[in-house]
Nucleic acid binder design. Structure first.
Lengths: 248, 248
DNA sequence: CGCTGGATGTCGCAG
DNA sequence: CTGCGACGTCCAGCG
């Protein structure tokens, strides 16, 4: 049964010593399983930045794609981690289990040293399903292309992702008087950054098209902060309230 | 032993049916434990956006601070999640175990429905150590304040986080000819966004100080993208190569 | 690979 | 609470 490659029962180990934990984890890594460890450990990271975490109880997850995640009992984000593409290794050092996830380019190393492993588990997940999300910026774009009048009466979209020297414009079109219109779309309430982005596109197009061309810049989002609204006014840009989902 | 509040042994359960899993998980939530589940499940989310994930094997973590994380065998990010502050609940529905994490403001609901739980575990982590990171933007600022000549010979910092109508300037000072200098610091290679940010500060100060005041805007970062370099030149801003860590 | 911009970004801090 | 910007952001898409 243990040799059956299709065995999908999780393997577990309670309170192992370092060498038992290393054997278990080495096998899990070898088998491309999703491995988890819980116990008392220190964590060191060196790479794009550097960090050090003194001893405490944490949950460690090693994924077969090379991801490593170290979680405490608080926070949505891992306290330390390693990105996909790393190589996981483990070894015994004295009474400790040492788990390392290493990559080059950029050179990064995550070292977890367990003084005690309370529990270890390994799974073989099979998951081919993909996530289907609604309410994204892509949905907002779809809404606008299907019903351009939501932006303003007479608006006609001509292109999406139109290239400018400053980057790609979300939606490019004309108003009912034939003036060029540039839309910058955001799925949620926007701050000053989006105004800067829109302004860069408008200015790039003003330079790109023949001189004197009047170009309207419209920020399309559910709402806008006060600072962003002031910036819009300063730059002669406009705001159109519109949500990616219908209810708003 | 099970009643000992100082008991730090993880509690575990292999291949429970729905009601056993619900009892186990309900107890773990009640006890403010860090709970993990592995098994076959569907996931629904509705809140800021909405998403749906068909049946597959995933690892679910529920933290006592209200965080929920759903991980597949790939990727550093959870495929679905819920932020700290949620209330976790679980119940039996037919043969399924249903786990929900709910919050209001914003109204969000994550629903995980297990058709089979392969394994459940609950831990009582106590983690009082705090992480200490090196190589951040704060380190870059510290370097500059300790050794202003790194920016340019004769630079004198006068204030940090100086307020402007466009937001707070990272470092504010004077050059060796008495001209006002604004620094925008970035810990790593920068793109066009940072140039827009720096430009907003410079323009705000030009309006704020007496007319005709010449203000220099310096972007301080390890390096800069080509587009950003072009934008800098356009806006009459400057680039100073400097890294938050000494080796560069 | 590097650049660019989105994200249910998350997180921390100030008002 | 909102606003704002940093982040070892992560991530997909494109050249």
């Amino acid at each position: 049964m243990a040799d059956d490659p299709t065995d999908r029962t999780p393997r577990t180990l309670a309170a192992p010593d370092a060498s038992a934990a290393a054997a278990f984890l080495g096998d899990a890594i070898e088998r491309d399983a999703l491995a988890t460890l819980f116990g008392r450990c220190t964590v060191e990271y060196d790479g794009r930045a550097a960090s050090s975490l003194a001893s405490g109880d944490r949950h460690v997850m090693l994924k077969p794609d090379g991801t490593a995640l170290v979680h405490t009992d608080e926070g949505q984000q891992p306290v330390n981690w390693q990105s996909p593409g790393c190589a996981h290794e483990c070894r015994v050092d004295g009474d400790d289990l040492v788990v390392e996830s290493v990559r080059s380019s950029p050179a990064e190393r995550l070292t977890v040293r367990f003084s005690a492993v309370a529990f270890a588990a390994a799974f073989d997940p099979t998951d081919e399903e993909s996530l289907d999300v609604v309410g994204t910026e892509a949905d907002l774009k779809r809404r606008i292309l299907e019903e351009p009048g939501l932006v303003e009466s007479g608006f006609r979209p001509l292109a999406t992702e139109r290239r400018t020297p400053a980057g790609a414009v979300d939606v490019y079109g004309e108003d009912d008087e034939g003036r060029t219109v540039v839309l910058e779309l955001k799925r949620r309430r926007v701050g000053p950054d989006a105004v800067g982005q829109l302004n860069r596109y408008v200015e790039a197009l003003e330079r790109d098209l023949h001189a004197g061309a009047e170009i309207r810049g419209l920020l399309v989002a559910p709402s806008v902060t006060e600072r962003a609204r002031a910036l819009l006014a300063e730059e002669g840009l406009e705001f159109v309230p519109l949500s990616p989902r219908e209810e708003s």
